[in-house]
Design a protein around this nucleic acid. Structure first.
Length: 369
DNA sequence: AAAGCGGGGCG
DNA sequence: CGCCCAGCTTT
């Protein structure tokens, strides 16, 4: 099959468009630095620019360079990451910084092979670091580029299929120029993010319109093919809101890997267990006034989590010393200082707000003025 | 409620 | 390899 456009011409259209309309003032473009490119690329995995921006700014304020990050504690990194999701990214980020310090004299290696051995860096992120950070000829294939290419060539089949993925990488590499790779790479991401959007693409503003196969056959939004859908299983748990006499709640640190790994969360109790017995056995709490406070559903990529919040008043607490790192009492007003998973923070805040409006909040009654 | 967004890790 | 895992935002 012949290509609708020579790579040289494809690049010219894309680069000309970028010069006029591309994004040149994103927070990670302020200073040309592989550290900033890397950090932003990790944050931008599965996460959009508008969400990432404030996180990125807080992050570089606290860790302005690679060596400061490499010296950080995991808790500090997770606190900055809390709410962004996919917390393995934060763990890998720290490990990667440490490896760069120890094995690479604090510099990013400038080749795909070595970059991809670093935790959290796969083929696309490695390409982004080389192209955006070092202006070297390397291709990326993120969601934006996938959308542009599947439409431009009207490639059917879900991009997660290995055959489709392989084809897309071939195209990505074919079009990536040797010169001006940084500008081209940013241009392709901008094109995908601003013009070749998932729904309602702005084809009338697209520099590739006249050669785009999907446009010319009438249905750009048909590409890329959707992921085969699956019914998600439902998992149910109770989350315990244990309130002591200082009106603090008990938080528990999650195990280092798995869901919300390393973040602070509420004590979790199987849905068929008795919350009162469970609190005593696992959290050393003598409780009373058990109240079913609220129900919420949080959906992960692979299951629904139905959460039943149970509020209990704690009268006595007898913790063994060894547990003091895993469980802490925390003032509800200071939640932003702890790395809490987003839905847990939301749940607590909703309960806390209802304290002032209903009689079913965390403290069971409106506070005295 | 469903879709979208990369990479790690396992068998 | 193919398959599972992970968490938000947007639509």
């Amino acid at each position: 099959m012949t290509h609708p456009l020579l790579p040289k011409h494809f690049q010219q259209h894309v680069l000309n468009w970028f010069n006029k309309h591309g994004r040149k003032n994103l927070p990670w473009q302020q200073k040309k630095s592989p550290y900033h490119v890397w950090l932003s690329e990790i944050m931008l995995q599965q996460t959009q620019v508008t969400t990432v921006t404030p996180y990125f700014q807080r992050f570089i304020k606290q860790f302005p360079n690679l060596s400061s990050l490499a010296a950080a504690q995991l808790d500090e990194v997770l606190n900055l990451w809390a709410g962004l999701g996919y917390y393995a990214r934060a763990r890998n980020l720290l490990r990667c910084a440490q490896m760069l310090e120890q094995k690479y004299a604090g510099k990013f290696p400038q080749n795909l092979i070595q970059l991809q051995t670093l935790p959290g860096i796969g083929r696309s992120t490695a390409g982004a670091i080389l192209s955006l950070g070092f202006d070297q000829a390397a291709a990326i294939l993120d969601g934006n580029v996938k959308r542009v290419l599947t439409r431009f060539h009207a490639i059917a089949g879900w991009p997660g299929l290995s055959a489709v993925n392989k084809k897309l990488w071939e195209l990505a590499e074919r079009y990536t120029p040797i010169q001006q790779t940084a500008a081209y790479t940013q241009a392709m991401m901008d094109l995908g993010a601003l013009i070749c959007t998932r729904t309602q693409p702005k084809c009338d503003q697209c520099p590739l319109q006249t050669h785009c196969l999907a446009y010319n056959t009438g249905n750009p939004a048909h590409f890329p093919s959707p992921k085969p859908s699956k019914k998600l299983p439902i998992r149910s748990i109770q989350m315990l809101i244990l309130v002591n006499q200082q009106q603090e709640i008990l938080l528990e640190k999650r195990p280092p890997t798995g869901i919300w790994g390393g973040l602070w969360s509420l004590p979790e109790c199987p849905s068929d267990a008795d919350a009162k017995n469970f609190s005593k056995k696992h959290y050393y709490c003598e409780t009373e006034k058990v109240r079913q406070a609220m129900q919420m559903r949080h959906t992960f990529s692979h299951f629904h989590l139905d959460i039943q919040a149970v509020v209990m008043q704690v009268n006595k607490w007898h913790p063994p010393l060894m547990e003091s790192d895993r469980i802490v009492w925390y003032n509800v007003q200071q939640l932003q200082k702890k790395g809490l998973a987003a839905p847990i923070k939301k749940l607590i805040q909703q309960l806390n707000n209802s304290t002032y409006t209903h009689s079913n909040g965390i403290f069971g009654k409106a506070p005295r003025k």
